[in-house]
Simulated assay, not measured.
Amino acid sequence: MHAPPSETGTSAAVTGAAMTTCFGDTDRTVDALLAGESGVAPLRGMDTEAMGVVYGYPIADGDESQSRASGWLTGVIRDATAGLELDGRRVAVVVGSGLRELRSLERWHRDGAAFGVRQLHFDEAVRAALPGVAEVLTVSNACSASGYALAVGMDLLSADEADVVVAAGTDSRTESMLTMIGKIGDELTAAVEPFDVDRTGVLLGEGAAAVVIEREARTPLGWIRSVGLTCDAHHETAPDQAGVVGAMRDAHERAGVTPADIGLVVAHGTGTALNDPTEAGALTETFGTSRPQITAIKGATGHTSGGASLMNTIVALTAMRTGTIPAVTGLRTPIEQAAGLNLVVGDAAPTTATLAQVDAFGFGGVNAVTVVEVA
Rank of each mutant, 00 (worst) to 15 (best):
H2F: 02
A3Y: 09
S6P: 01
A12H: 13
A12Y: 06
A13F: 04
A17H: 10
M19S: 07
T20P: 00
F23E: 08
D31P: 00
P42H: 05
T48N: 04
E49K: 14
G52T: 04
G52A: 04
V53H: 13
V54F: 13
G62M: 05
G62S: 13
S67T: 02
W72D: 05
L73S: 05
L73I: 12
V76K: 03
R78G: 14
A80L: 03
G88M: 11
R90P: 00
V93G: 02
S97F: 07
Q119N: 11
H121A: 12
H121L: 15
F122R: 04
A129I: 01
P131F: 11
V139I: 13
S140K: 02
C143I: 03
Y148M: 06
L156T: 11
S158H: 12
V166F: 09
A167D: 08
S172N: 10
S172V: 13
M180G: 15
I184H: 05
P194F: 10
T200P: 01
V202W: 01
L204A: 14
G207Y: 08
R215W: 10
E216P: 00
A217D: 13
T219L: 15
R225T: 04
V227G: 12
L229I: 02
T230D: 07
H234M: 03
A238C: 08
A242F: 02
A242I: 11
G246I: 15
A247D: 14
A247Y: 13
R254I: 09
A255I: 09
I262S: 10
A267H: 05
T270V: 06
L274P: 00
N275E: 11
P277L: 11
A282Q: 08
E285L: 15
G288I: 10
G288L: 07
I294E: 08
G299K: 06
T301S: 00
G302I: 01
G302W: 14
G302A: 07
H303F: 07
A308G: 00
S309V: 09
L310R: 12
A316K: 10
L317I: 14
R321D: 06
T322G: 00
P326H: 07
G330Y: 12
L331W: 11
L331K: 01
T333W: 10
P334C: 07
I335N: 01
A338K: 00
G340A: 14
A349P: 00
A349Y: 00
T352I: 04
T354V: 09
V369I: 03
T370W: 12
V374K: 13
